[in-house]
Design a protein around this nucleic acid. Sequence first.
DNA 1: ACAAAAGTGTTCCTTCTACACCCATGA
DNA 2: TCATGGGTGTAGAAGGAACACTTTTGT
Lengths: 231, 231
Amino acid sequence: MIEREHTYLRLAVDVAVLTVREGALAVLVITRANEPFRGRPALPGGFLREGEDIPEAAAREFAEETGLDPTALHLEQLKAYGAPDRDPRGRVVSVAFLAIMPDLPLPTPGSDARGAAWEPVDRVRGTLSFDHDRILDDAVEQARSRLEFTTLATAFCGAVFTMGDLRRVYEVVWGHELDPRNFSRKVINTPGFVEPTGAHKTSEAGRPAALYRAGGGTTLNPPILRASAGG
Amino acid sequence: MIEREHTYLRLAVDVAVLTVREGALAVLVITRANEPFRGRPALPGGFLREGEDIPEAAAREFAEETGLDPTALHLEQLKAYGAPDRDPRGRVVSVAFLAIMPDLPLPTPGSDARGAAWEPVDRVRGTLSFDHDRILDDAVEQARSRLEFTTLATAFCGAVFTMGDLRRVYEVVWGHELDPRNFSRKVINTPGFVEPTGAHKTSEAGRPAALYRAGGGTTLNPPILRASAGG
DNA sequence: ACAAAAGTGTTCCTTCTACACCCATGA
DNA sequence: TCATGGGTGTAGAAGGAACACTTTTGT
């Protein structure tokens, strides 16, 4: 009946960009240049603009804060966070995104830009601004789950990768080791996951590994389930 | 640099309430009382109010449009929808929710309230206002997936139910039949899914069925996977 | 020769699936 | 006694876990 039972607000978009780096799960963290939380770490993000769709805003924020091209980036929406007091500037609802990319060097490693840097997830946990710690937790859990049921792991790798590379993604994200031999078979027997390139990588030590690229599929059938924690 | 690169907007909350009713998956649909889309079907929803958290708003809208108590309701956030032109009234971002409840009669079946009614999902598909058709599709897919990995199916049933009741939930939501004997074993062998009450239901025809209530668990380990569509 | 990483073969075990068979009720 | 829905047993197939063993490189 009363038609003013609503409130105007601003919509923010925050992106948890994950990668595997130096054997650990890392997240892209910026140091805030403005109040609130000036000088404190936070996830990259910003406000939605006029006429802009939400995924568009997420890609733009990613590009602005990293200087990288977002077109090849895996970017998926997580959920919206809207506690009334989550932002001291006023009513701000944030739509959080999960992004996955290979371990690329950031173009401006602390020079002029807002200082985006890779940080191990375990190191930043509990230190982020706003409710970004919760967003990060949700993003990590989403990534863990996605590895079970989708081909997301290839998004952590470059254009070509070895079975060992792909397996290390699983091991780092899930936090436990996998049998290399069984893993290899499972991946190869899952249609659409990887395609052999025919080339081999003759690197550091050991027998040269076959190189693969990402396959056309997105869902894993059968899934690669985590070891059940209770069994 | 320019610190007005944002836009103020209103946040809507829309709820896809699903149930199993007369052997079909049904969704709660209202007939819109106001423009835009006046007289057209839509999902129940409304604007976020000042000082209100998002799940709170979803529960309130559910209660307002159905007259039912939302405390026992399964209510989970789906995602945010924010295409710039999704609402002709201006910039409105909607956070969609999935709700699951048993097939309860609605207190005001078309009397004074905004006319909430159960409609089979297959009947309303393609007829809803705004982008609610897409929201409904996403809600149904989320429900299908949740049945695989969580104890959500019990939310479709009343306080006590038979194995047949629970199985029919799966059959209706997934759209294909299941073997009653294997289903029963899977459910019983999944810890935390159901608890026997000891009572039996001596109804229509056949041998009396044991009655169960929902167990304490939320995740299904092992999951009950849908038959893979490609194999 | 030896270490290190990649990959193959095989065995054991759990789970899924299909279905024969038995149980308890109402008409 | 027959139809109907509930429930147990079991054999075969499929997939996962563990691990012995072989392959191919660098040092």
